[in-house]
Design a protein around this nucleic acid. Structure first.
Lengths: 245, 245
DNA sequence: CAAGCGGTCTTTGTATACAAGTCGGGTGTA
DNA sequence: TACACCCGACTTGTATACAAAGACCGCTTG
């Protein structure tokens, strides 16, 4: 894992905490990254109590950096803290998730619209590359590979929007929703559908048809959200659970 | 000032830090609110160095809560921290601001589109009220009154979107851009124009014409951004300055 | 006179100590 | 037996102490 990367909380201009590569990172940043990952992965499901002393013991540091990490996570909305009552991993209700997916779809759509208008030739080529990679990784047996290829595809579009702030916001939300998206690619034929949708988006971008591209992307993400909602609706549990597998 | 309100960093469901009213807030939260306001107001212009010891002395507390406040502000992107070099108020370049305004316009437009489809009758009436208030406060002599009315108008639309997460994100960005927007209402005839644009938006919502409403709002915000960009372009300074008046 | 260098000095990062509030269990009483 | 109150342990919030890493300044030297 890359300790230096401040995966969330990015500023408008660039990463705010944790300076350039090669620098010795702060303990607090390392802890934040670690906890972030464990929350995103679902290792720490919503509602888990995060005990400062316990975490300090577990990581072999004092409470001070732990507190800073938790504070940072609270600002990002990944954990909720009640004064004098400690922090718990933020459990997103089904309603919360639907709202967030709705915003996600719009942000991605916006990125795509801007990308269709602003992408350079080099960026277009890069996008086509990622599309090919998606098709090549479209093997239901190795969903992780497709997950990576899919990520690269969307990243290429973020870059094409030529709006780093927008890109960072979208990335952050995407990261936050990650544990609730992973399961969807396991659906039968979902990967092939995803690939076709990607191709449709690229085709629209190729023709510089911003409106079509935007619509295609919105549908692409919305379909995922619907798939998720359908999946989640079967679970009676209120705070949407993630699979800890 | 309301110490309990966590004006930024709101979670999906509700405010994350600082529990319900009546509870004794933490020093760190108070400090964060205070610094937030001073940054938003422009009292602390971009690039200002935030010395932990100095702030601790100034507020009469120890460095610990100051550090937490700064950490939280860093997560929100209001300050940048470089390891071992402390925190400075994030100075937004003109490019950063343009990007953020672009996203702002789209978020507001999205709120409006959703509001046009989802507003209840009561919410529509509330919106009309805020519109009237805007017209009544349209006095160039008291720009603050119009500022408040304008805020209420937009808040009414946020509420109408029925997507609290989206509302919170929009609010946060709005807050962040606040110091760069205040100056615009001083332009000649700007308030009247703003009112007319508001009326146009309300009319579209009244007719449940989501597309028109979205477009009207996007134009409304984009015009402000353009006004700002024009204004800022005259200042040769690179890190966009705010008026400390 | 300018550039490189070393020392000091401030400032941040981390650890520890202390205070204050909250939660739970136990006990007493109606 | 059930409820209320009290006490204690544990947790968080805050303050202080210590260590290390840049920054600044003066000195030396080419």
């Amino acid at each position: 894992m890359d300790w230096n990367a401040a995966s969330t909380g990015g500023s408008a201009s660039e990463a705010n905490t944790a300076g350039g590569a090669g620098r010795k990172p702060r303990l607090a940043d390392r802890l934040r990254c670690q906890l972030e990952e464990e929350i995103a992965t679902g290792k720490l499901p919503g509602g888990t109590r995060l005990d400062e002393t316990g975490l300090a013991r577990r990581f072999g540091v004092s409470r001070t950096p732990v507190r800073e990490a938790l504070s940072s996570l609270a600002s990002a909305g990944l954990v909720e803290t009640r004064p004098r009552q400690g922090a718990i991993v933020a459990g997103l209700s089904l309603g919360d998730l639907i709202q967030m997916f709705e915003v996600m779809a719009e942000l991605e759509a916006l990125c795509t619209r801007l990308a269709a208008r602003r992408m350079t030739e080099a960026e277009r080529q890069r996008l086509e590359q990622t599309l090919h990679a998606c098709f090549e990784a479209a093997d239901p047996g190795r969903p992780n590979d497709y997950y990576e290829a899919n990520l690269a595809f969307h990243e290429a579009i973020y870059a094409g929007s030529h709006n780093p702030y927008l890109a960072e916001q979208t990335r952050q939300l995407r990261n936050r929703l990650q544990p609730y998206r992973r399961t969807q690619l396991t659906g039968p034929g979902r990967i092939e559908t995803s690939c076709r949708e990607h191709a449709e988006i690229v085709e629209a971008i190729r023709q510089a048809d911003a409106i079509s591209a935007e619509g295609a992307m919105r549908r692409h993400v919305t379909i995922q959200a619907d798939t998720f909602a359908e999946l989640a609706a079967r679970l009676p549990e209120s705070p949407a659970a993630v699979d800890n597998a």
